[in-house]
């Protein structure tokens, strides 16, 4: 698959939230206003990008030579958790402004299944290093797109008369379901039509 193909796949066709339903916790939790949604999206994009690269290195450099591929899930969890913690510390020290913007979201991402998901998908698809990085970043961008769209919808929903029972999270889930239905329109044929396979 070409690099553009990977980007289109993970932003639209296999969008992490709306098609694969991974990382729903921050999607619902942090989509109340668009400013923090953008912050969360950027933090996820950053972490998925870096985690893809590091996990690829651990897998190819450590697990494959020792024939321990079956340990990939637990190894990736370890690596991602440590990585996010490290990134948080470095940001706190080096760039307090960026830490303020992203910092509160980083602990949320530590155990986000979207990050682990992209690392495992990279292995399943047997991507090389650069392909892994591309898929990681595009998965994050897909997440950002979904959460920013969602936050705009929710900002407008705040002003609409919604039944008290449905106010807040319930109506957000219903809207997310409708968005997911719309995203079902993107499927593999898109890649063929664009000539990206």
């Amino acid at each position: 698959m070409s690099y553009i193909g990977i980007i289109v796949t993970y932003v639209f066709i296999s969008n992490f939230i709306l098609v694969q339903f991974m990382g729903l916790c921050p999607f619902i939790g942090v989509s109340k206003n668009s400013e923090s949604a953008i912050g969360m999206g950027l933090a996820v994009t950053f972490v998925t990008g870096v985690a893809s690269v590091v996990c690829w290195c651990v897998y190819e450099g450590l697990l494959v030579p020792l024939n321990l591929q079956y340990l990939k899930t637990i190894a990736f969890i370890l690596v991602i958790a440590a990585l996010v913690q490290l990134v948080e510390m470095v940001l706190k020290k080096m760039s307090p402004a960026l830490y303020k913007a992203l910092g509160i979201f980083l602990p949320l991402i530590t155990t986000n299944c979207a990050v682990l998901g992209i690392a495992l998908i990279n292995v399943d698809e047997s991507f090389n290093l650069l392909e892994s990085f591309t898929s990681g970043v595009s998965a994050g961008l897909g997440f950002t797109m979904a959460i920013v769209l969602m936050s705009n919808i929710r900002e407008r929903l705040e002003l609409k008369p919604v039944r008290r029972l449905f106010k807040g999270v319930p109506i957000a889930f219903i809207s997310a379901g409708l968005m997911a239905l719309a995203f079902m329109a993107f499927d593999k044929t898109l890649l063929y039509n664009l000539g990206l396979v």
Binding site: L63, A75, L78, V79, A82, L86, M89, V90
Partner: peptide
């Protein structure tokens, strides 16, 4: 398997502690 995971955990933990 045990050594790799334990080693990975120890290295990462140590790294975080130093950081």
């Amino acid at each position: 398997a045990f050594l790799i995971i334990a080693g990975l955990g120890a290295v990462l933990g140590l790294g975080l502690a130093i950081a």
